[in-house]
């Protein structure tokens, strides 16, 4: 019972923090993208356009809810909620400081991969339920992509698991706090594993350069083609939550999470997470979209074998000395 209250309390706290971060993150992204393209970004609503995300949310919630006549109503309505659950649920096991963690699960890594992997279900429910050709094509591409990139993701996540010998994320962070960050040392499985993790995470959250599932020049809007108003907002939110939680996960697994000198753990975790989050925006507004075949080739002929090799290197590191 105590644990239920703890989970619900910290869940509310963490979910609120994540959602307000992404609201401001959307403002930041538009400002950032604007500056990169030599324009100003939002300026009208509030000082420096700071209230723009709230205006957007209120506008979206007021929109009419249109469900296509031929759609599968049940799947169509369920998909956006499931998308939010699958992206937000991952945050349950991420330690934001030594004490701020909703659920210190001893198989935290499996929870992250499992709940994150379930994301294909709302994707397919949305694509199939819409009964729209663009949506179905988008869903099929999204599933092929996230299923493929799930493999290098798992292999990259296995590197910190092997090096620390723990499946719990707080355990992995504690190990790094005691010894060293995995992205820094041992640098050979650590840093390349982080790069693979980062690429796979971009692909899993359908970010440029891997945003083929909703390539707007080909597929209108992919799975969200038929969605309006609040349900569209939920998909949009889920995508940003996925990115932010992925950044937090990268910070925890490879950059020592809350570990750092001079400041409380929470500050370090937030700093690292936001740095990765900004890096994703930077990539997004700098690169072009891959083609579907390039995307698949990168995953299966490069990232997967490299991931297996890195896994074996980290195993050798653990077995034959190096770190203890």
């Amino acid at each position: 019972m105590n644990e239920l209250v703890h989970g619900a309390l910290y869940g509310t706290l963490i979910a609120t923090a994540i959602l307000s971060t992404i609201a401001m993150g959307i403002w930041f992204e538009r400002k950032f993208a604007g500056r990169m393209q030599q324009r100003l970004g939002p300026t009208i609503v509030g000082p420096a356009g700071l209230l723009q995300p709230f205006a957007d949310i209120i506008k979206l919630l007021q929109k009419e809810d249109i469900v296509p006549r031929d759609a599968d109503r049940g799947l169509f309505d369920l998909a956006p909620i499931l998308a939010v659950v699958c992206s937000l649920g991952v945050a349950a096991v991420i330690p934001f400081s030594p004490s701020i963690i909703a659920s210190d699960l001893d198989v935290g890594v499996l929870w992250v991969l499992g709940i994150g992997g379930l994301m294909v279900i709302p994707t397919f429910a949305a694509g199939w339920g819409s009964n729209n050709k663009f949506a179905l094509l988008g869903a099929m591409r999204a599933i092929a992509q996230s299923v493929s990139y799930g493999v290098p993701l798992v292999l990259a996540v296995l590197v910190p698991v092997v090096l620390s010998g723990s499946l719990s994320i707080s355990g992995i962070v504690a190990w790094q706090a005691q010894h060293h960050w995995f992205a820094v040392w041992p640098i050979v499985p650590g840093l390349p594993a982080f790069v693979i993790f980062f690429l796979a995470m971009l692909a899993e959250s359908n970010r440029i350069p891997f945003d083929i599932p909703e390539a707007e020049s080909e597929l209108v809007a992919g799975i969200t083609t038929e969605y309006t108003g609040a349900k569209f907002t939920l998909f949009y939110m889920a995508e940003y939550v996925h990115t932010l939680v992925g950044s937090a996960l990268g910070a925890a697994l490879f950059f020592g999470g809350w570990d750092g000198p001079f400041a409380p753990g929470l500050h370090w975790m937030v700093l690292k997470t936001l740095t990765l989050f900004v890096l994703i925006y930077w990539v997004r507004w700098s690169l072009l979209r891959f083609r579907a075949d390039q995307l698949m080739r990168l995953c299966w002929t490069w990232l997967t074998p490299i991931g297996v090799a890195l896994l074996l290197v980290s195993a050798a590191w653990v077995t034959f000395g190096g770190t203890n």
Binding site: V5, T12, L82, A83, G89, V93, A102, S103, L105
Partner: peptide, 14 residues
Amino acid sequence: LSAFAFLLVSTLVG
């Protein structure tokens, strides 16, 4: 239990 409570909160958000 905490993890499932977290999922419940996420569902409530949606």
